[in-house]
Design a protein around this nucleic acid. Sequence first.
DNA 1: GAGGCCATGTAACATGTTACATGATTGT
DNA 2: ACAATCATGTAACATGTTACATGGCCTC
Lengths: 190, 190
Amino acid sequence: MSLRHALLGLLVDRTASGYDLMKLFDTSLANVWPATQSQVYGELGKLDTTGLVEVVAEGPRGRKEYGLTPEGLAELRRWLVEEEGSRPQRSETLLQVFFLGVLPKNQAVARLLRQAGTAARQHAGLAALKESVDWEDGMLSVNGRLALEYGLRLRAMEEEWARWAADEVLRKGSGRAADAEDAPAEAPES
Amino acid sequence: MSLRHALLGLLVDRTASGYDLMKLFDTSLANVWPATQSQVYGELGKLDTTGLVEVVAEGPRGRKEYGLTPEGLAELRRWLVEEEGSRPQRSETLLQVFFLGVLPKNQAVARLLRQAGTAARQHAGLAALKESVDWEDGMLSVNGRLALEYGLRLRAMEEEWARWAADEVLRKGSGRAADAEDAPAEAPES
DNA sequence: GAGGCCATGTAACATGTTACATGATTGT
DNA sequence: ACAATCATGTAACATGTTACATGGCCTC
């Protein structure tokens, strides 16, 4: 139930409407905990019922501005201290690596190099983000910087790994060699 | 819909019952794509209906042994070649980092060092696994080795990052300093 | 004959995604 | 007045988790 805690966390610094929170999700939390509009409104309702947040003001267009209650802040602290961040994390990419052997060697290599390219692009995106953000900001930015650094290191590692893996497959082979029936490998996008 | 493809992938090398597949999930795929028993049986039923797998033998205790059909193999190949492994990946750990500012500095540092310890333990676990596996095995092991290496690099990166982040928080501060109202930080487990 | 493993399934619930529906307000 | 943006919500569906239910087979 982390969406709940993401909302509580965002409400520490400010009061906000569901609409405002959606924008915050799309900007600050997009890479860490994406959420859809339905989810946000639904969860806000539940949090209100539970008493972890409350409506502190109403505005035009039925706008409801929520604020954190003392109970909400306590719950957020409890979560930060007690909860082990360890839900099972699935990786579709790695799953595909597992079965790469059913592809002819050249296609398997192409696939891995494509992944290297994707990781490199993501790395570049985060690097650009790092430049564009004003890091003198509030609490969220301070710690957001730590999260961003994680992303940078992760993508760098992924690119390096994918290149290494492609090389391994090339040298040691991963299953079937290309035969006449198989389509030739496409060149990896540069 | 990757569970579907995980099942198809496992059935490339062998025929197997739902029960057998569960064991394979718990051993080879546990760290990459965990699945529960309900999911496996449910999805096998759908795959059978769709014609991507078929019952090739029946055994005692109502055992149904499934095998891959040509259509199933084709679908697996299509997935490997076409599908970008890029579903939004959530990280509860990073989400917690984002809101670390609501904790007093010493608790925030303790939290990060705890994460470093967890990553180190996971790294050790994978290293032990690497030793214990017979890598001369089938296709699955060959590529499983690549996935394992990813895990090793990931956990190493995480430990290093967490130590770096703890140091950053210590030096630059992350929000509130500890005050009399806050509980003292516990020593990070060694 | 008893306990453990093999084997399959269902039900209830939580979470997440996509699409649809509705309308008020603001700026030009 | 028209479009863009603000603003909230519902419905249907897919995926994943936990718990329950049932019973056959094998070994000691």
